[in-house]
C-alpha cells in the first residue's frame, strides 16, 4: 500500500469524537497526532486522544500465551492467528473542520461517516490548523474514559504542532499563553503542562514504522 498517510478507519462515531481501527495491530498514531477524515470536500479534523488494543470479540478476553517463549516476537510468530483475534483502536477528538485549507474550530455540521478513512495530516496542514489555538481549551475538558488525561493530550498536541514547525519557540510560547487563561486557578497544573512542551521534543510516533 503506498503511503497516503492513511492510518485507519472509523468504527464508531459520537458527537465530538470517533473511534477508528488501526489497519495494523499496535500501530495507532501517537497521542496528539492531527488526523483528518471526511467526504464531499469537507475535512473533519481531530486529534488522537489515545489508543487501545483488545480482543476482537469482547466476550473473549485475551489469555497469556508466552510462558514458554523466549521473547515477545516469538510469541507472535508462533500464534499467527493473533492479529486476527486482536485489534488496535484509537480515539479521535474533533477540533474542527475545513474546506480547502480554511478551518473552523467547532463541530462539523455533518458527523464523519462510519468506515470513513482516517489520514494523518501533513506538516503543512498541521501548521495551518494550529495558527489558531483556542481549541486547546476544548481539549482541556475531559474526554473518553480511556483516552489520555486532558493535560497529556494538550501537551502532546502542542508538541506535535511544534514538531510540524521544526521547533518554534514563539509558537510554544503562544500556545502556553492560551492555556494560562484556562488554568489560572490551578497554577501547579499550569506549570506542569507548560514544562511538558517547553522544549522541542523528539518524535515518538509509533505508527510510522509499521506502515
Amino acid at each position: 500500500m503506498p503511503d497516503t498517510g492513511r492510518v485507519g478507519e472509523i468504527v464508531e462515531v459520537a458527537a465530538a469524537e470517533y473511534l477508528a481501527q488501526s489497519y495494523a495491530l499496535h500501530a495507532a498514531p501517537a497521542i496528539g497526532t492531527f488526523v483528518r477524515t471526511g467526504h464531499e470536500g469537507v475535512d473533519v479534523i481531530g486529534v488522537v486522544a489515545g489508543s487501545r488494543t483488545a480482543g476482537v470479540d469482547p466476550s473473549r478476553r485475551p489469555i497469556a500465551r508466552g510462558e514458554d517463549e523466549d521473547d515477545e516476537d516469538a510469541l507472535y510468530r508462533h500464534n499467527p492467528e493473533l492479529p486476527e483475534l486482536l485489534r488496535t483502536e484509537f480515539a479521535v477528538r474533533l477540533v474542527g473542520f475545513g474546506r480547502a485549507g480554511r478551518y473552523s474550530y467547532f463541530l462539523p455540521p455533518v458527523a464523519p461517516r462510519l468506515h470513513g478513512f482516517v489520514y494523518r495530516c501533513l506538516d503543512d496542514e498541521v501548521i495551518a490548523l494550529t495558527e489558531q489555538l483556542t481549541f486547546l481549551r476544548t481539549l482541556l475538558q475531559p474526554g473518553l474514559s480511556w483516552g489520555a488525561p486532558p493535560d497529556e493530550l494538550v501537551g502532546a498536541t502542542i508538541r506535535a504542532a511544534d514538531r510540524a514547525r521544526g521547533g518554534d519557540r514563539a509558537f510554544r510560547i503562544r500556545a502556553g499563553k492560551v492555556l494560562v487563561g484556562a488554568l489560572l486557578n490551578d497554577v501547579p497544573r499550569l506549570e506542569a503542562l507548560l514544562r511538558s512542551f517547553q522544549q522541542l521534543s523528539e518524535s515518538v510516533d509509533s505508527s510510522r514504522d509499521h506502515l
Binding site: V180, D186, V187, E191, L194, Q198
Partner: peptide, 17 residues
C-alpha cells in the same frame, strides 16, 4: 493564586508565557 504561590519564573519559558 499567581500572587500567592508564584510559579517558577526562574524558568524563562514559564516567565515569558
Amino acid at each position: 493564586q499567581l500572587a500567592a504561590s508564584p510559579p517558577d519564573v526562574s524558568d524563562p519559558f514559564v516567565a515569558e508565557v
